[in-house]
């Protein structure tokens, strides 16, 4: 039995159940022709069936990942760090503004990924933020959040 495969199959099954619950809230047929619930109901059956096949196949061992390459603990830490940094960046985007958030994000990430050169740490985050600001805010005229740096036109 492959635990990760079983868990993935169970998640598919749970998603199918939630789609089924949602689909049942809409009419299957409307005046004799398919209504808003018609296709969602069929889809939910498809997801549920796939989920059942995935779980049973994983338990029997017929469904398994070829050469699974799960990360080592350090790899998981880096993935977690990236997700946490992006979450923090989204939360702070409106408050601090694009330039500060991007500089901080880049600085924290490249430091945590192993860059120790002070020259790189000092230049890459600032230059990245300025370059992206130039492309999106200046060239494409996207109103990126300014946050506390309100003096930038």
């Amino acid at each position: 039995m492959h635990k990760a495969e079983v868990v993935a199959g169970a998640l598919v099954l749970a998603f199918g159940a939630s789609v089924l619950a949602g689909a049942l809230q809409f009419p299957f047929l409307l005046e004799g022709v398919p209504g808003p619930g018609f296709l969602p109901l069929l889809i939910s059956f498809g997801i549920l069936s796939s989920g059942v096949v995935l779980i049973t196949g994983s338990i029997r061992g017929t469904i398994k990942t070829e050469n699974p390459r799960w990360a080592a603990l350090a790899g998981w830490r880096r993935v977690g760090l990236m997700l946490a940094s992006m979450t923090a960046a989204f939360l702070l985007l409106e408050l601090l503004g694009f330039l500060i958030v991007t500089t901080l994000f880049m600085g924290v990430m490249i430091f945590c990924l192993g860059v120790r050169s002070w020259r790189v740490l000092a230049t890459v985050p600032v230059l990245s933020a300025i370059a992206l600001y130039a492309v999106f805010a200046v060239w494409l005229r996207v109103p990126l959040p300014k946050g506390i740096i309100t003096f930038i036109g």
């Binding site: 880049m106 990430m109 990924l113 990245s128 996207v142």
Partner: peptide, 24 residues
């Protein structure tokens, strides 16, 4: 190095997606 490229692509994705609908 990937240590620079990976966060750069990530932040590019963020600003790219935000730039279309300005939606968090």
């Amino acid at each position: 190095p990937y240590t620079v490229l990976a966060p750069l692509i990530a932040i590019f994705c963020v600003v790219g997606v935000y730039s279309v609908n300005y939606s968090v």
